[in-house]
Computed example of a mutant assay.
Amino acid sequence: MADFEDQSGSESEESLVTHRELQEAFSRGALKPGLNIVLEGKKKALNNVDGLKQCLSEFKQHLEWVERLDVTLAQASNIISPTLSQTPDKASPDPEDDFQREMSFYHQAQAAVLTALPQLHHLKVPTRRPDDYFAEMAKTDQQMQKIRQKLRSKQAAMEKSEKAKQLRALRKYGKKVQIEVLQKRQKEKATMLNAVKKYQKGLSDKLDFLDGEHPPPRGKKEGAGGQRVKKGPNAKRRYKNQKFGFGGKKKGSKWNTRESHDDVSSFRAKVAHNKVSGKAGKKGFNKRPGKKMRQKMKSRAG
């Protein structure tokens, strides 16, 4: 209840203050008809140079330059931008162009560094960080450890994904090669079976398919010069020749020739007409009778 009474009292005081201000404004003639108060104009800002200098002297600290490291330069004139239409000595970047604005900041900072470095060297202040330099980081070690772990987990996930992609690609390639090998084997098997069938039917007398040698396709029996290619013996014949030796010509060995026909030195008339005397001759004439004769002989004996 006490808080409510205090709040109501403060509201009544505020309302009295506002009534008094309204009465004073009415007595001055500042109140005009309407809901809004028309302002006469903006308040003019005063450039109090002496007051500003006095405030600056109050908080300004007279320190050496090495403690302040402040460098004040004019606008850098070596701004290189192909979109600038002004001359290099009087170049001013367009504030609406983000690229020109950022390049002007960069060149201004570069000019300031080039101006400050000789002064630091003159004061024998090192400008390069030594190898054993230690500085307190803005982030704690635990936070950096979490970041490292997160980066490592991301890198491991990326490596795992890349490895999985490579395995999938290898599997696809392996399947493709396997299919090609199976197709090749099936084709060779079909070719061999076809050659075996031809050999069994007597359509071919070659066994080159047993040695893995395939005969040339039809229509390609001629050499490069258009001459007919002479074929040698097949694999089976070559193997037998290597094992048993070449026995000479067999076919046509009993054919008569002009010389063999004229040569009668080995002719024996008695041998040729079975007129050999003695036991050998008797044996030659003691031939077995025929079937009918044997049956007659059996019937007579019976």
Rank of each mutant, 00 (worst) to 15 (best):
Q142I: 09
E21Y: 11
L207N: 04
A109C: 04
K250N: 10
L63R: 12
P118L: 00
D141G: 09
A272M: 13
E136L: 10
K292Q: 10
S81P: 01
V271D: 07
L193G: 09
A116D: 00
T83F: 07
G302Q: 14
R152C: 06
G174K: 13
T127C: 05
G278S: 02
V71Q: 02
S77A: 12
R129Q: 15
Q166I: 13
L22A: 06
G247Q: 12
A164I: 10
G223F: 00
K231D: 09
G226W: 01
P215Q: 08
A116P: 00
F105L: 11
Q142E: 10
A235V: 04
I179L: 09
G245T: 06
Y173N: 15
Q242V: 05
F105D: 11
P82S: 05
K198C: 06
L114P: 00
A45L: 14
F99S: 08
M158P: 01
N194S: 15
K172N: 10
K197T: 11
V264C: 11
K154F: 07
E21T: 13
G223R: 02
G245L: 04
E58I: 14
Q242E: 09
D131A: 14
F99V: 11
K163D: 08
S277W: 04
N234M: 01
M158Q: 15
S8I: 12
R148H: 07
A2D: 09
P118F: 00
M103D: 00
S77E: 07
E13N: 12
G226V: 01
A91G: 01
V196R: 02
I80T: 12
D3S: 15
T257R: 02
R129F: 08
S85M: 11
C55L: 15
L22P: 00
E136V: 08
V181I: 15
Q149F: 07
G174Q: 14
M144E: 06
R168W: 06
M1K: 15
Q186M: 07
R28N: 09
L151V: 06
H107S: 07
Q143V: 02
E159M: 05
G284K: 12
D262T: 11
E24Y: 05
